[in-house]
């Protein structure tokens, strides 16, 4: 099996997997980073969202061979101590219910805020609508994004 080297959350990792293995399963099964979730396996739910060089990426449809030398960031790498502004806002608003979709929501929100530090509701709709939540936390996600925008950088 081919060997790939990756940068995940700032560390170098080597894995030995078939070339078509989606990044999601490399993270979950090989690297034991289970914070990134499986929801649909076909790019429809956003549960598996990670950042590749800062851009939102659906890990379930990205074969490992196409990752290249781009830096992978997962929920585990967002901060060491839940101190990222999005995480703090998420706690302040108490967003999660079952929690399964939350890493995808949080990673997407982090990328949104990196690009638009004070997003409009339309921008929030556009960025966040690909990430499904069966528990219905959408209104709290929106509120938390506004809170994070207000407190951003602090």
């Amino acid at each position: 099996m081919p060997e790939y080297s990756l940068t995940v959350n700032g560390s170098h990792r080597r894995v030995d997997v078939p070339a078509d293995t989606p990044l999601l399963w490399v993270l979950r099964d090989e690297l034991e980073l289970t914070g990134t979730k499986y929801g649909c396996g076909s790019g429809q739910c956003g549960s598996c969202t990670v950042l590749l060089d800062g851009s939102v990426t659906l890990a379930c449809v990205l074969p490992i061979e196409n990752v290249g030398d781009r830096a992978v960031q997962t929920i585990e790498g967002l901060s060491d101590d839940r101190s990222h502004p999005v995480q703090r806002a998420w706690l302040e608003v108490d967003v999660p219910q079952c929690g399964w979709c939350q890493p995808g929501q949080i990673m997407t929100a982090a990328a949104l805020l990196a690009q638009h530090p004070d997003p409009t509701d339309e921008q929030i709709d556009e960025w966040m609508s690909p990430v499904l939540c069966r528990c219905g936390t959408y209104n709290r996600c929106r509120k938390a994004i506004h809170v994070a925008a207000q407190e951003g950088g602090r």
Binding site: T34, T74, E76, R82, L91, V95
Partner: peptide, 10 residues
């Protein structure tokens, strides 16, 4: 249960 659900540790 919120803290463990926002950092991937749950």
């Amino acid at each position: 249960d919120s803290p463990e659900k926002i950092d991937g540790s749950a």
